[in-house]
Design a protein around this nucleic acid. Structure first.
Lengths: 165, 165
DNA sequence: ATATATTTCCCATGCAGTGGAAAAATGTGG
DNA sequence: CCACATTTTTCCACTGCATGGGAAATATAT
């Protein structure tokens, strides 16, 4: 059973060129085209990941236009029941930085420079399918996140058995 | 689904030159032109942001002429139901400082010196899309706001999950 | 009335973003 | 293992935005 949270999957290494463009992996492009005629998407900041050494790994999240519209609506309607100070903080962190983008005829997209800077994307990057969205990380950051995950929450047989793996 | 609150989006770094001029980012100019033939706008003081150390970050908010007219009308009609002392305070804080501006033929606007001073705009600044308006912050203030947001209300998985992210 | 400061307009320049072509790499089927 | 198709990367040329400076026009002060 494939449902709507299974749209984007898999990890794909890629690169960003000197002008900040990157080739969206073909399977993600196909998934976007599958989902809707409108293949535009929204790029924004991903939730920072605690690297365990007092620093945070920063990356980007990419949503199909409609998916983002739904999320934004929920945030603005404060479905999480936050205080107004918290809600403003959330807006500043992920709603305001969001930018609408699209791929050119060759499947490339320009990552807006402010977001490129935020995620420290220079050359080598990873695309990571996350179900209803996909994330973009610099290679270095993604390596550190993986190492931290392994140390922090090792997947032993117990943990896996609890989920029928 | 794109609606009227999605006009201005994204963060753009820029500068103010020695004459107090700044180039309005092209996408914001386009959005203004899209919205109405009259591309004038209103600049006023933004709501100060608590920086957590007893100080406040001050910036500016920019509204299309029509949008501002609607907001001003609501304020003056006291739709918020404030006491008259509160209402006067609100007027002094954001209605009175408001100034009408426009971009020159090259897309640059002169920020009135009183507002420049209020927001401590010197050289490096950020334009931040906020939906129906956009804000202008000095680079230093904007950095402090972001740092404060992260410290104060980190976007962890819990917070985001509450909103379907 | 004259000097000084402020604002507006225009030009020149550098650089970021856009698009296409083609080479290189990768995957696919025979 | 080879031939072919697709995807990804690199390269180059072009457009348009951003930026700084000079000069004209306007306002303000002396």
């Amino acid at each position: 059973m494939i449902d709507s949270i299974d749209i984007f999957g898999g990890e794909t290494p890629s690169t960003i060129d000197g002008k900040g463009r990157t080739c969206i992996p073909a399977k993600f492009r196909d998934a976007l085209a599958n989902l809707s005629e409108d293949t535009r998407f929204i790029i924004t900041k991903a939730a920072p990941v605690d690297l365990g050494d007092g620093t945070f790994g920063r990356g980007l999240s990419v949503y199909p236009l409609d998916t983002w519209a739904g999320i934004k609506k929920k945030i603005l309607a404060n479905e999480g029941g936050f205080t107004s100070a918290q809600l403003n903080s959330i807006k500043r962190q992920i709603v305001n930085p969001a930018e609408e983008c699209s791929a050119d005829k060759l499947g490339r997209a320009l990552i807006p420079s402010s977001l490129r800077l935020h995620a420290e994307l220079e050359r080598d990057i990873w695309f990571v399918g996350m179900g209803q969205r996909f994330d973009i990380w610099s290679k270095g950051t993604y390596c550190r996140i993986n190492a931290q995950d392994e140390k922090n929450f090792p997947l032993d047989s117990e943990a896996l058995a609890a989920m029928g793996v």
